[in-house]
Computed example of a mutant assay.
Amino acid sequence: MTSLAELPLWQRLEVARQYLKPVQSDYRVVFETDLDGSACILVPDPNWLACALYGGILPPVEVYHDLDIDENGRVLNGHILHETAPVGPMTEEEAIEYLIKKDVPAHVWQDNRGNRPKFVICHKTQLPQDREFRNAWALKEVS
């Protein structure tokens, strides 16, 4: 019998979808890609978080950084996602860090220069419940 780790990523995700219970996270990542834009909110997908917590399904986050994308947005070497050995189980905090490195633009989390935060990890209860002025949200400067 083939182990889960030997399957391509898409098959590991399908198996996980069938057998793992989705996990809702209370964490949110609020980030700004530029000074003039509104803040973005990254919410972990419950099925993805279940995969991260279970382990043996997701490839190392560095694999996503090694993808070659052409001028039309096509991935040229997507096979590396399926051929790289998956990482083990993560804590929820480690999964959030993984997700930041995977889905938030690198210039936000890599570049620490400047005198204001570019992203914060918070609980969903710390965000305004009223979304009426969502397009005007910005990270508050802490002095």
Rank of each mutant, 00 (worst) to 15 (best):
Y98C: 03
Y27C: 05
L76F: 03
D70V: 07
G37Y: 07
I121V: 15
E141C: 10
L58T: 09
L7Q: 08
R113S: 15
L13N: 08
K118G: 11
S3A: 15
C122H: 06
L49Q: 00
P128S: 06
L139I: 15
W109R: 02
E92A: 00
R113P: 07
Y19R: 15
Y98Q: 04
Q110M: 13
L76V: 00
E14I: 04
E83Q: 14
P46V: 02
V142I: 15
R134N: 03
D103W: 12
P117E: 05
L13H: 06
A39W: 13
Q24E: 10
H65G: 09
I69K: 05
V142R: 09
I100R: 07
Y19V: 15
I80W: 15
P86T: 09
P59L: 02
H79Q: 05
E94W: 06
Q129L: 08
E132H: 11
V75R: 07
H65F: 12
E62S: 10
I121D: 02
Q11V: 02
L58W: 09
F133I: 03
W10R: 10
E92R: 01
G88T: 13
Q24C: 02
F119S: 01
E83H: 11
L42E: 08
L76D: 05
M1T: 15
P117K: 03
V108E: 05
K118D: 05
S143P: 09
L4I: 13
F31P: 01
D111C: 07
D34I: 11
I69S: 07
K102S: 03
T33P: 04
L76E: 10
H65P: 00
H82E: 10
D111M: 11
I96M: 09
C40K: 15
A85N: 13
D66Q: 14
R113Q: 13
L53I: 07
P46R: 01
D103E: 12
G88N: 03
C40D: 10
Y54H: 12
D111K: 11
W48D: 13
D45C: 06
L81E: 00
L13C: 00
L49W: 05
T33M: 08
D111P: 05
V87C: 02
Q129S: 05
C40F: 11
G55Q: 08
I41M: 02
V61C: 04
V104S: 07
D70S: 01
V29A: 07
F133M: 05
V75A: 04
D36H: 13
A50G: 07
R28Q: 05
Y64N: 03
K101P: 04
I121K: 01
Q18L: 11
I100H: 11
L42H: 06
V87L: 05
I69G: 01
G78C: 06
V15H: 02
N135C: 02
S3W: 12
D26P: 02
I80D: 11
Q24H: 00
A106T: 04
S143R: 13
K101E: 14
K140A: 12
P86R: 12
F119D: 01
V43E: 08
K140D: 08
L20C: 00
V23K: 10
M90K: 06
L81I: 12
K124T: 04
Q11H: 05
R131C: 02
L20G: 10
L139M: 11
D68H: 13
L99W: 03
V15A: 07
